[in-house]
Design a binder for these strands. Structure first.
Length: 501
RNA sequence: GGUUCCGUGGCCGAGUGGCUAGGCUGAGCUCUGCAAAAGCUCCUACAGCGGUUCGAAUCCGCUCGGAACCUCCA
């Protein structure tokens, strides 16, 4: 029996607003597409939360034994500044402002994006396609939609005809919108507009003479619309219907709604079985966003040099902080919450290093209640993760496991009083959940061989001093090391361990 | 204005009909030469009002408060 059979995953499907049991299209395989960044600026912490959500999803599916193909794109052209007809491409605009090649902009912010995600210990996707690498496919699907009468060309631009589409399908199926209401609210169509209806959106835009990103097409030189690249790249690598499509809540409308319309229009079938949306990171109850000016750059958070921060916090602290809430809830960002997260993370990380060094010893005292409790915790942590990736609940179980690990170490409860299978399963689960699934590794691990040896010498000397009951000197050694960021811990058994801040 | 979501103990944050979530803070105890770490114990909440029910934080209604989307955003 595989792990995924033992702990079947259920997830909140935005398309149906229900929690559903996950049934993959191809048994044993998961195909997941996540909307990546538009690389025209530095990635901020709110963005990070979304990618972290799907990092967990892909990690957990893999841990359960699925083969996962995780596709996350990079949008490097075609994202308009606004839906208005005169809308400008974000990357082209930034390139013009900074007097750089658009591809220099793309490279700079792609590099930043990768570096930041790596700092947070996120695993790379299986495929990371770019919009500019799929211009041909985008032109092809646009032609297909024109042929089907679901798009129209005006002055070298092509628009998706939402009204026409809505005659035979439901535009708004994902976001719960009605086309009549969309037609009434918001910006009015003015005489400058090429669009037939305000709800229509661009599949291909004619490049103005000043526009620097341009490709030839049957409609003249231009560039693709924003929504079409995701439709093309997701279906190219995952098929016309695939398992999971993820992204931030704010992409639900219009981006994901448009993706559905394009895919259904072109291929005649619903592209995605399960839509997953992660919620927003907030600051003082308000959404973190660039336009509101309340966003944090990860580098500012690590260094603590942001006006709203009292000090810096490590990547693992932040990762843990985010995982303590459920991805579908908003999460509020504050110094107090980060302080609490830092302590909590250290507690779990400490138990991780402890349990790794722990081995089962056989004995005769059988404690059925304890064995049952340990098995229950193992089950709790899986049940929590399989329940819509409830990392908060899983972490609660890990804290209880952590308490058991510390009790084993302290000798309050004896390892030998449970059977080795139970202990080993318990140990393996704690390590796997921490490292493989939640991606919470030990930050203070000493990778420096020389330092390790030096510490062994210092500890050896201090043991001697303590044995001689020269506590003034032994305290000085400990205090001085602490000032240098190394915390010594004198164990009950005379052994001395240390952690590095 | 339309659509949707939320309001949980000092703080953060799970939980959707009956069973102590968990973390942080605070108080006390144990262990330790003293610390640190760790263990144990205590602080038992669900915005307000009404309803359904044997039983509601959880379902329904109303009121108050907050947020998101309907322009660009993960």
């Amino acid at each position: 029996m595989t792990l995924y059979e033992k702990y079947p995953v259920s997830l909140s499907n935005s398309l149906t607003s229900n929690k559903e049991v996950f049934v993959p299209t191809n048994p044993g395989h998961v195909g997941m597409y996540v909307c990546g960044p538009t690389v025209y600026n530095y990635v901020h912490l709110g963005n990070v939360r979304t990618f972290l959500t799907f990092d967990i999803v892909s990690r957990y599916f893999r841990h359960l034994g699925y083969k996962v193909r995780y596709v996350r794109n990079i949008t490097d052209v075609g994202h308009l500044e606004s839906d208005a007809d005169e809308g400008e491409d974000k990357i082209a605009k930034k390139a013009r402002l900074e007097q750089l090649e658009p591809m220099e902009i793309v490279q700079t912010y792609s590099n930043d994006f990768h570096e930041v995600l790596h700092q947070f210990n996120m695993l790379p996707p299986s495929i990371e396609p770019t919009a500019t690498g799929h211009i041909v496919e985008q032109i092809e699907i646009t032609k297909k939609l024109l042929n089907k009468g679901l798009a129209y060309e005006v002055n070298g631009s092509v628009y998706f005809d939402v009204t026409k589409y809505n005659e035979s399908h439901h535009y708004g199926i994902l976001s719960g919108r009605k086309i009549e209401e969309l037609m009434e609210s918001g910006r009015k169509l003015d005489s400058q507009d090429e669009k037939r209806n305000k709800v229509d959106f661009a599949l291909w835009k004619k490049a103005s003479p000043a526009h620097i990103m341009r490709w030839p097409s049957p409609w003249g030189e231009g560039f693709p619309g924003w929504h079409i690249e995701c439709t093309v790249m997701s279906t190219k690598y995952l098929g016309e219907t695939f398992d999971i499509h993820g992204g931030g809540m704010d992409l639900k409308f219009p981006h994901h709604e448009c993706e559905i319309a394009q895919a259904v229009g072109a291929n005649g079938k619903s592209p995605v079985k399960y839509w997953l949306h992660s919620n927003m990171l907030t600051v003082n109850g308000q959404k973190m966003s660039k336009s509101l000016g309340n966003s944090f750059l990860p580098s500012e958070l690590f260094a603590g040099n942001h006006r709203l921060l009292e000090r810096g916090y490590s990547p693992m602290t932040v990762r843990f902080f985010m995982l303590q809430s459920h991805y579908s809830s908003t999460l509020d960002f504050s110094n107090d919450a980060l302080n609490a997260a830092e302590k909590g993370y250290k507690k779990l990380a400490n138990s991780l290093s402890v349990v790794k060094k722990m081995d089962h010893t056989s004995g005769k005292v059988a404690d059925q209640a304890l064995a049952q409790a340990l098995n229950q915790l193992v089950q709790d942590v899986y049940t929590a993760m399989s329940d819509d990736f409830n990392t908060a609940k899983a972490i609660a179980a890990l804290f209880e496991m952590s308490a058991r690990i510390n009790s084993f170490k302290a000798g309050t409860i004896g390892i030998e009083s449970v059977d080795s299978a139970t202990f080993n399963r318990f140990k393996a689960t704690y390590i796997a959940m921490m490292e493989d699934v939640l991606g919470l590794t030990e930050e203070t691990e000493v990778n420096n061989n020389t330092l390790t040896k030096v510490m062994d010498v210092v500890i050896g000397l201090r043991k001697k001093v303590r044995a001689d009951r020269n506590f003034a000197l032994s305290d000085k050694i400990r205090d001085d090391l602490q000032a240098a960021g190394i915390q010594l811990k004198d164990g009950k058994d005379g052994e001395i361990s240390y952690t590095i801040e």
